[in-house]
Design a protein around this nucleic acid. Sequence first.
RNA 1: GGGUCUGUGGCCUAGUUUGGAUAAGGCACCGUCCUUCUAAGUCGGUGAUCGGGGGUUCAAAUCCCCCCAGGCCCGCCA
Length: 548
Amino acid sequence: MLIYDDLGKRIATSTSGLKLKIEKTDIEIDSRGFADFVVKTFKFKDHPVSDITALSDAIAKLDFVEECSSTGGYLNIKVKAEKLYSIIDDAISGVGMYPETFQDPERVVVEHTSANPTGPIHVGRIRNSIIGDSVARIFARYGYRVSTHYFVNDSGKQVMALYEGFVRYCKGCELTVENLLHGYQEIYRHMEELGGETAVIGPLLKRYELPDVKLLEEIKGACSVVLKNIKETLGQLHVNIEDYIWESGFLQSEELVEVFERLGTHIKEEKKAKFLEMPWGKKEYLVRSDGTKLYLVRDLAYHLFKTEHFDVIVDVLGEDHRDYAKTLGYVLPDLMELDKRFEFLIYSFISLEGSKLSTRQGNIITVEELIKKGLEEASRIVSEKGNDYDEKTREKIAKEVAVASIRFNVVRVNPQKAIVFRWGEALNTEGDSAPFIMYSYARSSSILEKGEPSEKRKSSYGKEEKALLWNMYLFPDFIEKSMNSKRPDLIASYALALTKTFNDFYSSCQVNVAEDDIRGTRRRIVEMYRTIIKDAAGMLGINMLERM
RNA sequence: GGGUCUGUGGCCUAGUUUGGAUAAGGCACCGUCCUUCUAAGUCGGUGAUCGGGGGUUCAAAUCCCCCCAGGCCCGCCA
């Protein structure tokens, strides 16, 4: 959990002795520029005006309240800038961050990406990784003990097609991603002439479940090659997944046995096939008529495994898995009686304008390609700026800018909303973008680097200083909201809004040329901003640069 | 066909959970500001009956109903 001086809560508490008591939820953060906090008093119709006045007076008396005025059914509360300053200053002086994180004993696992290792990761898939990685970072920032998982599918028809395609169309070739992908696309192109999926993959499935250890190893080997490529790509985007859990590991596992035990009498049978019946009428199959097991079983075993180590299990899934998530959300707690928190973060797809993304059909834009173009674009911009940075510095700037831009342009959109991939937007570096944030950070670094420090502090604050302090004060609120709703885009909007208020401050408040007390205060405000914006960007996997 | 999610200026996005004070940003376009700490920036301007229609309410982008358009799902695939 987060620890900070919650002024809204203090206002609510202070009204406990009044006729009109308000809750923290009655105190809203103003978004229209009337005040800092706002209370909608028109909601309290059954209270006489005198109660509202008493409420207003009580709030106005609080030591951190600058002003509390009642107008047109609203209570507009303005907080003292010096209070905001000291709240943030104290936290950063004490623990180096605002707000402070109190380690929660609950263990959280975020499973994300989990793309079939049948080819390089493409732009349609990357949203999963970016959202998943950001959510994991936000949970960790909030105070949970977080781990990340990638569930590697090396047991299904797709990977068998990958293996078989390589054997048939690339016999004797070197085991590379390109050759594997070629074989994979070829086998799907010729599937009809070969007699269909059952004829081609069926025999492999049987051998797989025996299990034929040699086959298992060979398939896993093929998957490893592709997975290595995926890992490298993810790493470039600062997505580092802690554990890769192999699906084949559950084939003969204790967990798999326990899944069947726990499901017990819930399992129905029809023509030797085993299935579960959902309350909404759907049948979910566990075992085929020929005795081979379906993905659901292995995934249930994997989830059982997760409950042995974690308290909160978060799955990041594409919208095509919405119904599947509903199934898991029912089977795990209700049929298997697992008493843990299962949460599903469903996101909509990134589509290509006019065409559909498909690894099988070869219609993809790979993330490698996206990063490459992003790097070229960023390098071009860095050169154009005409700074006197050396080659190494330029490369570093271009790399971080490219990665940050790509991540930001994906993460800033509400996961629920679909994204159409457009090059111009994917690599956007102006306006509402990562470089806009990074640039203001670089400027703040420059301010601190150039001027003289001062221990003196001033006692009054200007409009822009106050606005910046207020927005910084609100940081914990946004961390909480984005954690609770599993929406990293809220952190992205926050970072943009905070940067805008910093830019206002920057353009109207001179720091280094000011008198000692003003300079001392302003430099400290700049330090606070740097700490907070870097923290926020960090939750989105964006690394700040001291200069750019 | 059934289910589900989405629809906000020319384009992209926030606001919808918990209905209220001028619908907020960005891109593009027009104009402003580098002899003040980095112009990837700043300031100003043009531009929205919030998909359409009904309803509830003193009050609707927000809640309810119907319709339209688009995404996704409806496998003994994963």
